[in-house]
Design a binder for these strands. Structure first.
Length: 645
RNA sequence: GCCGGUGUAGCUCAGUUGGCCAGAGCAUCUGAUUUGUAAUCAGAUGGUCGGGGGUUCGAAUCCCUCCACCGGCUCCA
């Protein structure tokens, strides 16, 4: 007998070799019907795999992440089987589960498929699912595996096999499809009740641009038809939050092919919003000891040769600007750091002068590949809320903590709760690609890890993701459709101080090299506004929103009073508009609601006579009658509540 | 940059297999209306059907090419 410990810590005795499915059945028949896979000591197993020793066991259903993953991974196999039957001779790459569904990379040879073919494939998948196919795990030797896929002519699986060790290789057979796979899988396919193929895309084999591009088919499956319906509805809802759609509807920004791809035009309301954000951060930074600087949009090419950026990115950037002077060339600045280094060099520093924090909302231009451009989140001209902190090596950690405070303060102010944090460190296998001394790297990496721990933040550590010049810490937020974007970033840099020969005099009287920290809490104004829009679906916090109130006169007869109210509110620094169209009040309200203006101020006969205002709140409805003073106070209170913490 | 998709008025979309002068709603403008908490009525303006080339008696519709956008891949100093 073995002892199985369940998640609620209860323990049960079972004969050796019991399977997850049998354990489920011993608990309840219902559970046995719904269970998809089993976690055995933290590892996900097939439900049919015998358990031979004492273990902690968790039965995964659709409500568990691992349960979904098992279902989707099995669905990928099923889709592959369907495709192989419909398109014989197809070669298969990899087919994993992902956050929302699964995909399979396939090579169709000379043929191609498009979304028009989805229905036919979906139908076939459902037919196969109904056959209640079982997944059969088979341990095979490397030799056998190679023989099988060589016979099938599938070079991708052969390529994968190269990196696998003999003895650790398993096949899964289901229906007519056999795949190289470590599992786990569903006991059988009958739990897959609804299928939707989502999209088709090109994907390079092994993520390598220089290799062949395969066709990637994305799909998702569900245990109930209703789950699929709900999911599709959710997707529709998410699309309504798309910042590109809201940006157009609320007249925040636009693009023009005549200006150029990826070069946003900020419309008056968008500019107002952005200005409010800038003011907010400038205020925070002033208190945190940052000194504002301003540098030009272009710089002599030699500046970037010195920084090393020209060598690395020159070919793929906007090309140099010629001048009438022979051989003179300028570059649109792709980053602000070299300029800030030159500012540093304008004087001498004692160790007591550090840290020096230079801040600039600096607009930079990068020639991103055309396929990369995406609304405001990825553009070719953007403004970084940039600052560079020049400090002593012993100050890195403290400065890091202070920057983190700013970023966390901003996220809190804007109610960003679902962010993730990533620490990017060196790749220990590949140390020669990094610049800077071993000692400083260690110090900086340690400082970042400790700073994150001190703040009690959960961060993913990614080795090999550091920039060549230093480790970094990134704050990422998801957009409406779950795509992850980097916003705030803090990066340690040993490269530029070296290249620009930056110095300070230490207490020992010798010259030392300062450490440079790049940081941008928003990341860029463009991307931040994009994510902010999707976060609040265009309903910006009152203090940020470009239009805070609108006066709606019942008819032209109340124009005099209405205009008086307008002036009063604007004088009280409430950004207020006036709707003077000869429309009915219902229409004016509807339009103001659509424009997501927080407060509607309705004035008519009664209000004029009493000197009052009828207030309606966006999304909430009629709030009743206020004196102008009471309303101003209401707005001011709401703003101070939102910005005080 | 690569793979796949899309492109009709400012916006959202009709326009079956090529065939009268390309339509609708909203928005805009004009007029009427003077309105009380999510759409007043009437009229008008607005399109080289993304650009260019081709096939055809005839192209929004078929073919080629370029451009832009969308979903991914790769990239992101």
């Amino acid at each position: 007998m073995i002892t199985i410990t369940l998640p609620d810590s209860s323990q049960r005795q079972y004969p050796k070799g019991i399977t997850g499915l049998e354990i489920a059945r011993s608990i309840s028949e219902g559970l046995a019907r719904n269970v998809l896979s089993v976690n055995v000591d933290g590892e996900v197993w097939d439900l049919t795999r015998p358990i031979h020793s004492n273990a902690r066991v968790k039965l995964n259903t659709w409500d568990d992440k691992d349960g979904k993953a098992t279902m989707w991974h099995s669905s990928a196999h099923l889709m592959a089987e369907a495709i192989e039957q419909l398109y014989p001779g197809t070669k298969f790459g990899i087919g994993p589960d992902v956050e929302n569904g699964f995909y399979y990379d396939i090579d169709l040879g000379d043929r191609s498929i498009s979304s028009n073919d989805f229905e036919k494939i979906e139908q076939r998948i459902l037919e196969l699912a109904r056959e209640k196919q079982t997944f059969h795990r088979k341990e095979v030797s490397k030799e056998e595996a190679i023989k099988y896929f060589a016979g099938k002519g599938d070079e991708y699986k052969l390529d994968l096999l190269k990196d696998l060790e003999d003895g650790s290789i398993s096949f899964y057979e289901s229906g007519t499809f056999t795949d190289l796979c470590r599992g786990p899988h569903l006991p059988d396919t009958s739990t897959i009740k609804a299928v939707k193929l989502l999209s088709i895309a090109g994907a390079y084999w092994r993520g390598d641009e220089s290799r062949k591009q395969l066709t990637r088919v994305y799909g998702i499956t569900f245990p109930k038809q209703k789950d699929l319906t709900v999911y599709l509805l959710l997707l529709e809802e998410a699309k309504k939050r798309d910042h590109r759609k809201i940006g157009r509807e609320l007249e925040l920004f636009a693009f023009s092919p005549n200006v150029g791809q990826g070069l946003p035009l900020w419309l008056p309301k968008g500019a107002q919003l952005r200005e409010n954000l800038e003011k907010f951060l400038k205020n925070v930074q002033r208190k945190a000891g940052y000194l504002p600087v301003i540098t030009p949009h272009i710089g002599n090419k030699t500046l970037y040769v010195t920084s090393g950026h020209y060598e690395k990115y020159g070919k793929d950037s906007f090309q140099p600007i010629q001048t009438p002077a022979e051989g003179e060339e300028f570059l649109l600045k792709p980053m602000n750091c070299p300029h800030h280094c030159e500012i540093y060099k304008t004087r001498q520093y004692s160790y007591k002068d550090l840290p020096l924090r230079l801040a600039e909302f600096g607009t930079v231009y990068r020639y991103e590949q055309s396929g990369e451009l995406h609304g405001l989140t990825r553009v070719r001209g953007f403004t970084q809320d940039d600052a560079h902190i020049f400090c002593r090596p012993d100050q890195v950690k403290e400065e890091f903590l202070k920057v983190m405070d700013i970023i966390l303060y901003i996220f809190k102010a804007l109610d960003f709760k679902d962010y993730s944090v990533q620490i990017s460190l060196r790749d220990p296998e590949n140390m020669q690609k990094y610049i800077g001394s071993e000692e400083n790297w260690e110090k900086a990496e340690k400082a970042i890890i400790e700073a994150v721990e001190e703040k009690g933040i959960k961060a993913e550590v990614e080795t090999g993701e550091a920039a060549f010049y230093g480790p970094k810490l990134d704050f990422m937020v998801n957009d409406a459709l779950g795509r992850r974007w980097q916003l705030g970033t803090i990066q340690v840099d040993y490269n530029l101080p070296e290249r620009f020969e930056l110095e300070y005099t230490g207490s020992d009287g010798f010259k030392h090299r300062p450490v440079m920290i790049h940081r941008a809490p928003f990341g860029s104004m463009e991307r931040f506004v994009a994510v902010l829009i999707e976060h609040c679906a265009g309903n910006f916090p009152l203090w940020l929103t470009p239009e805070q109130a609108i006066v709606l006169p019942i008819s032209e007869k109340y124009e005099e009073y209405g205009k008086k109210v307008l002036t009063l509110l604007n004088d009280a620094e409430i950004r207020t508009l006036y709707d003077e169209r000869s429309e009915k009040t219902g229409k004016k309200i509807r339009d103001a609601e659509t424009r997501k203006i927080p407060y509607m101020v309705i004035v008519g006969e009664k209000e004029e006579a009493e000197g009052t205002l009828s207030i309606r709140k966006h999304g909430a409805g009629d709030m009743g009658t206020f004196t102008p003073e009471a309303f101003i106070k209401l707005v001011q209170n709401e703003i101070s509540q939102l910005t005080a913490f």
